[in-house]
């Protein structure tokens, strides 16, 4: 029973982490139907900038919640800038080209960013400080979940709510929904498509930055290649849930997180990814457009 409970917590945490990254994939895909391969690298850059600012600000005497918020904010701003620049360099000139061209330029960008961070920072693994201050209610949960697990799940839930409100309630959210439904029609109705696309990248990158910071605090180490595996898993989760759909990304992430966790717990950790991918293939065979994806009927 305890094992089951622990595996549930582990699955929930893992799923939440994937969800934070998957949101970026799914939003970008929803708007311009592009798999932003370099998104995992944005997450990695988020972790790095947060670490750098925590060291710089820590030396100035900041600590506790102030330090965490300041680092998170700065990392989010920088990731947003990186995401924005990425779109301008690698994707914008390719708009309207065949769908695979931006995919390859995204892969190029991902290779570039990995090596860029490795060159200007370090090829070594770096220790990450635990920036999350003690949580007031953590005592009650102590046997079940750790502080960083609570923080990750809470942050993901908050991000989800904020994003849903943003999409449902703001003008920009409305514009995003319009563009994702029909770009041409949206443009004709006076939506500035460039701005919508840029904001999508910015918002996705902000979530990636939050993810980078929190996962750094949980695993207590980073390196310039950490974005690759996490990015691949998050991308898988986003597709599983129905790419382009925000709740779908979260559901897909949770399914992936739980299935990996239970496969490791009850089958063998050697096959955790095998089980997850077999499940993916099964689900997609039954629901070819993902769990929350809407089946598109093609008319000729």
């Amino acid at each position: 029973m305890e094992l089951f409970l622990n595996l549930c917590v582990s699955g929930l945490t893992k799923g939440s982490i994937y969800a934070l990254i998957a949101l970026g994939y799914t939003m970008v895909y929803g708007i311009i139907a592009l798999i932003n391969f370099a998104h995992g690298e944005i997450y990695m850059i988020g972790a790095f900038t947060a670490l750098i600012f925590s060291m710089a600000l820590g030396a100035l005497g900041l600590s506790g919640w102030g330090l965490l918020l300041a680092c998170g904010l700065l990392a989010a701003v920088y990731c947003a800038m990186y995401g924005w620049t990425l779109e301008k360099i690698a994707y914008k000139p390719l708009r309207g080209q065949s769908r695979l061209a931006p995919l390859i330029s995204a892969i190029g960008m991902s290779i570039f960013l990995q090596n860029y961070v490795q060159l200007v920072q370090t090829p070594n693994f770096l220790a990450y400080p635990d920036l999350i201050p003690p949580l007031p209610f953590a005592g009650a949960l102590s046997g079940v979940a750790t502080k960083s697990q609570v923080a990750i799940v809470a942050a993901t839930a908050l991000s989800m709510i904020a994003l849903t409100l943003f999409i449902k309630r703001t003008r920009m959210g409305l514009a995003m929904r319009a563009v994702s439904q029909d770009p041409t029609m949206a443009r004709l109705s006076g939506v500035n498509i460039d701005r919508v696309i840029s904001s999508t990248f910015v918002i996705g990158s902000v979530f990636a930055a939050v993810g980078g910071l929190l996962i750094g605090c949980a695993t207590r180490q980073i390196d310039s290649y950490q974005g690759f595996l996490a990015g691949m898993k998050a991308f898988t989760a986003a597709v599983l849930g129905g790419i382009g759909s925000v709740p779908g990304a979260v559901i897909g992430s949770l399914i992936l997180g739980f299935s990996e966790s239970f496969a490791a717990g009850y089958v063998s950790s050697d096959y955790e990814d095998v089980v997850a991918f077999v499940l993916l293939i099964l689900i997609l065979t039954l629901r070819p457009d993902g769990i929350m994806g809407s089946a598109t009927t093609q008319k000729v």
Binding site: I89, A90, L94, S98, A101, S105, M109, F112, Y116, L119
Partner: peptide
Amino acid sequence: DYRMLIFGLIMVVMMVFRPQ
């Protein structure tokens, strides 16, 4: 050391200027 950095960049540049 710059090998893969330049490689990634060239991939982007080639795609941008010759997407087909």
